[in-house]
Design a binder for these strands. Structure first.
Lengths: 219, 219
DNA sequence: GTAGTCATGTAAGAGGTTACATGATTAG
DNA sequence: CTAATCATGTAACCTCTTACATGACTAC
């Protein structure tokens, strides 16, 4: 149960509606990033309200409409701390991308190449995202962090920032590892391409991806 | 849908029962590692049978009992290839361990220390597991790989081994990144501990942030 | 003969995704 | 006036996990 604690983590800093919560959690560049759709948020908030982890204040929106602004309760704060202390449950890491590479011997090399290029693109985007966030955090210009710091004693500020940065470093390290791995993949494809040309068209120099029927055997 | 393709990947090399499949996929040191319980395997096999991706041969087991030995069909092989060519769907990576570190400012340093030590233990075990597997693969002593190679032309053997090794390298790189990150965490804790002099004490009582005024009561 | 393994399943539930439904409010 | 945004939800479905149910077989 981690969505619940992501919600508590946000509400501990700033009360907001379910709509805003979904927005906050799902947007990139957020200190508490745990993407969740409205279909997940609204029912969860109701459950949390029943368990007194959060409290809702019904506020008017315009003339007729209303909205429910959720705030964390004392019980909610305690639950957040209890969960933070608790060890994480390590689940088997099944990575669909890594897994798929097992079967690249039965597809054209061109496809594998595209795969690794996409992989690099995806993780470079994520890397940038995390690095940007860490920067706005370290110079204390992130609004959410500033608010978090404002409600905590000054002597804790360093620890708060360092732990948040460390959390981001975990994501950053992973992204870097994925990029390096994908580059290793591209290198392998190049090597195999110059060695054989049986399963698919191989761009040995510049891409001349015209015919797949070219069959050359070496040695 | 990836369990389905893990199953096809195994059956492409060796026909077996649902029981054996669950065993194979879930055991460490397996080339096709995609842990799945029987509750997942059996219904999936039935669905796959309906779609003609696999075929079952009912074989006797002892005198009265029977078992269903599943084999991959031509359609199944085609589906495996189709899926291998298809790009992977990248989902948001939510890592509960990285996420939790965000909240280490509200728990005792001792707890955080335990967390990182556990993290290192977990990923060292995984690292060993993958490295062992890669070794038994590279020297061609893995039984599953040997069987895979036996049914493929010799000139493909290198590519098969290299791609499987690459897949493992992805897991290995990730494990190494996690270990390095956790060590960074331990170092941070040491630094914070020496700054604070009081090791293992809660920074301050968690107070409700509901009131943004300076209303903090010590319970 | 009993314990552990082989073998096949069902039930319930957690967590997440996609799509749909509804209506008020605000910005241009 | 219209479109985008704010706001709250429901329904269906997918994947995975945990627990339970059943019974035959094998090793000791």
């Amino acid at each position: 149960v981690s969505l619940r604690h992501a919600i508590l983590g946000v509400l501990a800093v700033h009360s907001m509606t379910g709509y805003d919560l979904s927005d906050y959690l799902s947007a990139t560049g957020r200190l508490v990033y745990w993407p969740a759709g409205q279909a997940q948020i609204y029912p969860e908030l109701r459950r949390m309200e029943n368990e007194k982890l959060v409290s809702a204040k019904v506020a008017p929106r315009g003339k007729l409409a209303k909205k429910r602004i959720y705030a964390i309760t004392k019980i909610g704060m305690e639950e957040l701390q209890r969960w933070a202390k608790e060890p994480v449950a390590y689940t088997a890491d099944r990575d669909p991308a890594h897994f798929k590479v097992n079967y690249f011997d039965i597809i054209p090399l061109e496809r594998s190449k595209t795969f690794f290029e996409t992989h690099i693109t995806v993780y470079k985007a994520r890397l940038n995202q995390w690095e940007d966030l860490e920067r706005t955090m370290r110079d204390r210009s992130d609004a959410f962090l500033a608010r978090r710091l404002a409600i905590r004693p000054r002597e804790e500020h360093d620890a708060i920032v360092e732990f948040r940065a460390l959390a981001l470093d975990g994501q950053i390290a992973r992204a870097k590892a994925e990029i390096a791995w994908a580059r290793q993949g591209l290198k392998l494809i190049e090597d195999l391409g110059s060695r054989r040309t049986k399963m698919g068209t191989v761009p040995s120099k510049v891409s001349s991806t015209k015919s797949r029927t070219a069959k050359r055997s070496r040695a």
